[in-house]
Amino acid sequence: MADLVIGADLGGTSTRVALADADGALLATASAGGGNPTSHGADRAAAELGIAVKRALDGFDPRRVRAAVLGVAGAGALDDPGAARLFDEAVGGSGLAVRPDFLSDAEVAYCSATPRPSGTLLLAGTGAKAARVRDRRVQATADGFGWLLGDHGSGFWLGREAVRAVLAAIDGTGPETSLTGTVPGRLLDRPLDRPAYRRRYAVIRAVAARPPVALAGLAVLVAEAEAAGDEVATSICDRAAAHLVRTIGEVREPGERGPLVLNGGVVRSPHSPVGRRVRRLIAERFAGEVLTPADGIAGAVWLAVRAARPQWSEERLAAIHARLTGA
């Protein structure tokens, strides 16, 4: 009977698991709730992982699985032995005879874009960080400190800067901007009160009443305002791109020519306001091909194939990567 592998992508919104044969042909996929142990807690995240793995294995013999690679957003939480045990048990409860390999989402995202072993990754979604990748493992990181300490240029950062611009416009200490209408409209359930001091405190209270990372939901308003020619939104996007490229520079070694992978909602599309600027600044500063990854689960499956078939040539593994990613 043919050997099997498992690849998984555990994010804040969902846990996705794919079952494939050792040649990388997908046989089944399944999903469950969010699997980020940092944002959801290890108990809940592990439980969702267990559900997704069992769904993917439905109708298959788990003893045929030769390798399992799981990319985890918030993987640092698994440094805690108790959390790591919960995740091991969640997968082991499905009957697997192999111990899963838990990797960071950065490593899986990088390998979803390229089979080359070394390069650089920029992740810019709700948060933001850059990573130097060597032999398909993260060697060094920059930023990724979270909304309170960093994540400069991220979706959260864009949303926060939008609110700050609105407050400055209301106070008369900053330029007028169309964000003064759209941001409060998203935050409040009624029109802004007047005079100005009542309007500013309404916005401040609305922001304080929400989880801080919810500010990332305002990033789309910045993009819309930039597209309409708003100068304040344009400035915010300019500064976001500068922050992100500076973060790349903290981990990308001088003269490096390996691939530079861009992932995350802020930069993934070359047509988005920040993604467009980041690519322009990268071309001015760095060498190497700029790539965007396929679905993160493709990288996890490919790494599982590598683990299950260490004797295979790089050429054969590269062909499997191309098939999995549609390259």
Rank of each mutant, 00 (worst) to 15 (best):
residue 322 A to V: 13
residue 125 G to K: 06
residue 145 F to P: 03
residue 7 G to T: 10
residue 249 G to V: 05
residue 21 D to A: 13
residue 264 G to P: 02
residue 220 V to F: 07
residue 56 A to M: 09
residue 284 E to A: 15
residue 136 R to L: 13
residue 55 R to K: 15
residue 278 V to F: 01
residue 163 V to R: 00
residue 299 G to D: 07
residue 233 A to G: 01
residue 124 A to W: 03
residue 178 S to P: 05
residue 288 G to Q: 07
residue 260 L to M: 11
residue 2 A to Q: 15
residue 279 R to T: 06
residue 273 P to S: 11
residue 157 W to E: 05
residue 318 A to T: 15
residue 163 V to Y: 03
residue 254 P to I: 07
residue 4 L to M: 11
residue 242 A to L: 12
residue 303 L to E: 04
residue 131 A to H: 09
residue 162 A to E: 00
residue 104 S to H: 13
residue 293 P to L: 09
residue 187 L to D: 03
residue 67 A to W: 03
residue 32 A to K: 02
residue 149 L to N: 05
residue 91 V to W: 03
residue 97 A to H: 14
residue 255 G to H: 00
residue 120 T to S: 14
residue 85 R to F: 08
residue 218 L to I: 10
residue 212 P to W: 05
residue 235 S to Q: 13
residue 154 S to E: 08
residue 295 D to G: 04
residue 64 R to Q: 15
residue 165 A to K: 00
residue 73 A to W: 01
residue 260 L to W: 05
residue 98 V to C: 14
residue 182 T to G: 01
residue 53 V to K: 00
residue 241 A to C: 07
residue 281 L to M: 12
residue 145 F to N: 08
residue 315 E to Q: 15
residue 226 E to R: 15
residue 125 G to M: 07
residue 11 G to P: 12
residue 34 G to R: 09
residue 292 T to S: 14
residue 110 Y to T: 09
residue 109 A to S: 15
residue 61 D to W: 06
residue 314 E to G: 13
residue 277 R to P: 01
residue 70 L to I: 15
residue 262 L to A: 01
residue 82 G to F: 10
residue 183 V to T: 02
residue 15 T to W: 11
residue 254 P to M: 05
residue 13 T to N: 12
residue 50 G to W: 04
residue 174 G to K: 04
residue 120 T to F: 11
residue 64 R to S: 12
residue 310 P to L: 06
residue 58 D to F: 13
residue 210 R to V: 09
residue 258 G to V: 07
residue 36 N to H: 10
residue 138 V to A: 08
residue 154 S to P: 02
residue 151 D to Q: 01
residue 225 A to Q: 01
residue 95 G to T: 08
residue 200 R to M: 12
residue 201 Y to S: 15
residue 116 R to G: 13
residue 89 E to Q: 15
residue 319 A to Y: 08
residue 232 V to A: 02
residue 11 G to K: 11
residue 185 G to R: 06
residue 55 R to G: 09
residue 125 G to V: 06
residue 29 T to C: 13
residue 251 V to F: 00
residue 150 G to P: 04
residue 319 A to E: 15
residue 93 G to Q: 08
residue 38 T to I: 14
residue 95 G to V: 10
residue 209 A to L: 13
residue 235 S to V: 08
residue 19 L to D: 07
residue 325 T to K: 08
residue 64 R to T: 09
residue 142 A to F: 02
residue 181 G to M: 10
residue 175 P to G: 05
residue 245 V to I: 06
residue 266 V to A: 02
residue 293 P to T: 09
residue 251 V to C: 01
residue 48 E to S: 11
residue 60 F to M: 03
residue 198 R to H: 09
residue 166 V to F: 00
residue 6 I to S: 05
residue 319 A to M: 14
residue 251 V to H: 01
residue 110 Y to P: 04
residue 19 L to V: 13
residue 58 D to V: 11
residue 271 H to I: 10
residue 14 S to P: 08
residue 158 L to Q: 04
residue 194 R to A: 12
residue 198 R to Q: 11
residue 72 V to I: 14
residue 91 V to I: 14
residue 144 G to P: 02
residue 76 G to Q: 13
residue 297 I to M: 10
residue 197 Y to T: 12
residue 46 A to Q: 08
residue 39 S to T: 15
